[in-house]
Structure formats: structure tokens, C-alpha cells
């Protein structure tokens, strides 16, 4: 009898033209689907092709575990998809174009929805930091009212940048999970133990 694989999800989201499709590709063994179409409306001014469905990739972790990567469309009108995507997800990465005011506005709407409706570990990657007019991570955090969410400069085109962002998200989630494992029975706890 073959053992059923465990599957967890990682969601990569954010406004249009921030680098989500590239990050899904960078972190996947193979990209199964990229639903790019020729952009219309305002998006066509930003790039020729945009994602209308989902980018989807798989990273095989070991024989019994797979991580499925979902790159979700970069428009706030697709927020409803969170309800489905967050089930079984281990975290979310938001990418935002540091040079674009439109990207910031869209990101603010998306993040507000996320904060109110989704309970997942999250980090924000600030892309295009090398371009003129890019806002700094601290400026972005203040502008988007991100609270305690970490904003990290990232070059989404570079595999190492994608890895670093994912590792930061997962490392943060791991520390939270480990800290949650600490037992707090005040009557019986030995305070000589450090954790």
C-alpha cells in the first residue's frame, strides 16, 4: 500500500507586475501552470502579459511531503480566493513593486483584506529596489500600515532572493511554532530550563 503524500501550500501574492510568477518558478521543481494572457486595461501599461488565473508550481520536499506554490492574481478583486488558498497553507509572501504608487495602493487593499480575514505567517518582499524612485522597506511598511510584518528588499528575478524570502517566512513560522511548544505550567515549570 502506498502512503499518501502530505501537501502544504505556500501562497505568493501581491499587486500586478511585482514578480510573483518569477518567484513561483524560482521555488518550484517544475511549473505546472502559468495562466498568463495579454494584458488589457491599465495593466497593459505595466507589462504585456499578466496572470489571470493561478501560477502553480510544486516543490517536492521528500518522499512524503510536497509543497504546492500558488501565485495568485495581482488584483484586489481576487481577494475571495484566500478562503480556499489559506486552507492547509504554511504562509504567505506578498510582493510589492517599490517604485509604483499604483502597486502600493493595490497592495494596501489586498493586505487589509488579508489582515482581517486570513491568519497565516506573512512577509512582504519589496521588489525593484535597484530602480530610481524606489521606496525603502521602512517607507513601504509605514505607507501600507503593515504593523509587525517584516518588509524585506528582494530581487525576485534572482533565485537566491526568492530563497531568502521564503526562508525568512518559514524561519519566522518555525520560531513561532517552537515558542508555542514551550509549556507554561507555572506550578510545575522549572525556571532553570531556558526553553
Amino acid at each position: 500500500m502506498t502512503e499518501e503524500k502530505q501537501i502544504v501550500k505556500l501562497v505568493i501574492t501581491g499587486p500586478v507586475n511585482a514578480g510573483k510568477t518569477t518567484m513561483v518558478q524560482n521555488l518550484s521543481d517544475s511549473q505546472i501552470a502559468a495562466t498568463d494572457v495579454a494584458a488589457t486595461d491599465q495593466v497593459s501599461q505595466l507589462k504585456a502579459m499578466t496572470t489571470v488565473g493561478l501560477d502553480f508550481g510544486i516543490l517536492k520536499i521528500d518522499d512524503s511531503l510536497e509543497m504546492h506554490l500558488f501565485g495568485t492574481p495581482g488584483q484586489a478583486r481576487f481577494n475571495f480566493m484566500w478562503k480556499i488558498l489559506s486552507k492547509g497553507a504554511i504562509g504567505a509572501i506578498f510582493l510589492v513593486d517599490s517604485t509604483s504608487d499604483e502597486s502600493m495602493l493595490e497592495m494596501k487593499k489586498m493586505f487589509e483584506y488579508f489582515s482581517e480575514n486570513v491568519d497565516l505567517p506573512v512577509v512582504v518582499g519589496a521588489t525593484k529596489q535597484d530602480l530610481p524612485g524606489a521606496k525603502s522597506p521602512d517607507e513601504i511598511a509605514a505607507l501600507l500600515e503593515l504593523g509587525d510584518t517584516m518588509v524585506i528588499p528582494v530581487d525576485a528575478r534572482v533565485k537566491e532572493g526568492s530563497k531568502m524570502l521564503a526562508l525568512t517566512l518559514l524561519g519566522n513560522a518555525l520560531v513561532e511554532a517552537q515558542a508555542g511548544d514551550e509549556e507554561f505550567d507555572d506550578d510545575n515549570y522549572d525556571y532553570d530550563e531556558l526553553f
Binding site: 520536499i61 511531503l65 504554511i90 521564503a166 511554532a177
Partner: peptide
């Protein structure tokens, strides 16, 4: 959960 996260971190 910590086991899963650790394995994914190692893989990435």
C-alpha cells in the same frame, strides 16, 4: 508543524 517547516527549510 515544526517537523514540516524544518523539512521544507532544509529543502529550500
Amino acid at each position: 508543524k515544526t517537523s514540516i517547516l524544518s523539512r521544507i527549510i532544509d529543502r529550500i
